[in-house]
């Protein structure tokens, strides 16, 4: 009997998926907002206390500022961002035909600068780049995330999903180990969230500034003692794309506030 039981257990273990809990059903997805305390929620809800809005203000100024040797502003091609940029951030990272791969909103801004403004690209996490992407993302506030609808993105979403499930670093943890399997628990004083990227770029109180999703992903990687991918690396973009696909349909909150 015990022999048979041993076989049964072995078969069950072999059949079990690598990650026991698996992915979050659509009805149980929650924004990081729902994991926060009332004070931080209040800070995000009021546009005059949300420090992310300072960056949106700066971005609005940059939108109409002429730049580069072409002497063109974003507004010269795109017009009023309130109309033209509505829902745009909700579908990024998006497929770029020339490059044949997905690009993030930050990368798109820099591609625009290089190709149409003949301006130097803004460094990742620089104030101007964050301000512009916050301003653009703010126009999508409340819009449902639609990233990854483009069929050309499928292999990249799969790559991102594989990276999300990949154990890495000295702690040998995959993103999924915390954000699929153990959300709602705590890591010391901090809530473990589902890692839904609904509010980027967002103001993190710990950072004392606005930051991109890539910065968030890189600090998670340092947290599991893994070597973080460089800003703009295809792996980070793929992860970002998978996260947005995973949050499909959830409303955008940019710029959000997080502890």
């Amino acid at each position: 009997m015990s022999f048979l039981r041993a076989i049964a257990v072995t078969v069950m273990l072999a059949a079990a998926p690598v990650l026991l809990a698996g992915e979050i059903p659509p009805g149980e997805r929650r924004s990081g907002y729902s994991f926060m305390g009332p004070d931080t929620r209040a800070m995000q809800d009021d546009d005059t206390s949300n420090p992310g809005m300072l960056f949106v203000l700066d971005g609005e100024t940059l939108w109409t500022a002429k730049g580069g040797s072409a002497g063109k502003a974003c507004a010269d091609c795109h017009g009023d961002a309130r109309e033209t940029m509505k829902g745009v951030a909700a579908r990024y990272p998006a497929f770029d035909k020339t490059l044949g791969r997905p690009v993030t909103l930050d990368q798109r801004i820099n591609l625009c600068r290089a190709n149409h403004q003949q301006a130097t690209p803004l460094p990742y996490e620089s104030r101007d780049l964050l301000a512009l992407s916050a301003f653009v993302a703010h126009q999508s506030r409340g819009a449902a995330i639609t990233a990854a609808d483009d069929p050309q993105l499928k292999p990249f979403v799969e790559q991102g999903r594989a990276l999300f499930m990949l154990r890495q670093g000295q702690l040998n943890l995959a993103c999924a180990n915390c954000h699929d399997d153990n959300y709602d628990k705590h890591l010391a004083g901090a809530s473990v969230t589902q890692g839904q990227p609904t509010g980027y770029p967002l103001y993190r109180l710990e950072w004392q500034t606005l930051g991109s999703l890539e910065r968030r992903l890189r600090s998670c990687m340092s947290g599991v003692r893994a070597q973080a991918y460089d800003y703009g690396a295809p792996e980070l973009v793929a992860l970002e794309l998978y996260l947005m696909a995973r949050a499909r349909g959830m409303p955008m909150e940019s710029p959000a506030v997080r502890p």
Partner: peptide, 8 residues
Amino acid sequence: MASALINV
């Protein structure tokens, strides 16, 4: 670029 948000 200094900016401020005021609520009165």
